[in-house]
Amino acid sequence: MNIQTPSKAIPQATDSEIRIAQNKVIDRLSANPAVAVTTNALTAHVGDGLTCAVQQGKFRTVMDLGPAMGGAARGPGPGFIAKAGIAGCIAIGVKMAAAREGIEIQSADLRLETVSDDLAIFGLGDNRAAPRETRISLDVRSGAPDLVIEALVANVLECSPWFLALRDPQNVTVTTTVNNLNRSGSS
Rank of each mutant, 00 (worst) to 15 (best):
N2P: 08
I3N: 15
Q4Y: 13
Q4F: 13
S7P: 03
K8M: 12
K8P: 12
A9D: 12
A13E: 15
T14F: 03
T14W: 04
D15S: 06
E17P: 05
I20C: 10
L29A: 08
L29Q: 05
L29W: 03
L29R: 08
S30A: 03
A31Y: 00
V35H: 11
V35R: 10
A36E: 05
V37N: 14
T38E: 11
T39G: 04
T39C: 04
A44Q: 13
L50G: 00
T51W: 06
T51Y: 08
T51E: 09
A53K: 14
Q56M: 07
G57W: 07
R60N: 06
T61S: 12
V62D: 10
M63L: 11
G66R: 03
G66N: 13
M69R: 11
G70V: 13
G70S: 14
A72M: 15
A73N: 12
R74I: 05
R74L: 13
G77D: 11
G77I: 11
K83N: 05
A84W: 04
G85R: 02
G85N: 02
I86K: 00
A87R: 04
A87G: 13
K95F: 05
A97Y: 07
A98W: 05
A98N: 11
G102H: 01
I103G: 07
I103F: 03
I103R: 04
I105E: 12
I105A: 10
Q106D: 14
Q106C: 09
S107R: 12
A108G: 10
D109I: 01
L110C: 00
L110T: 00
R111C: 09
V115C: 07
V115T: 10
L119I: 03
A120W: 00
G123E: 03
L124F: 04
G125M: 01
A129M: 09
R132G: 14
E133V: 11
T134K: 08
D139I: 00
D139R: 06
V140K: 03
V140F: 02
R141M: 06
A144W: 04
A144F: 04
P145V: 09
L147P: 10
L147R: 09
E150P: 00
E150D: 10
A151L: 00
V153S: 15
L157P: 02
L157R: 09
E158H: 07
E158F: 00
S160D: 04
F163P: 00
L164E: 10
L164N: 12
P169D: 14
P169H: 09
V174K: 02
T175P: 01
T175N: 10
T175G: 06
T177M: 09
N182C: 07
G185P: 10
G185A: 15
S187R: 02
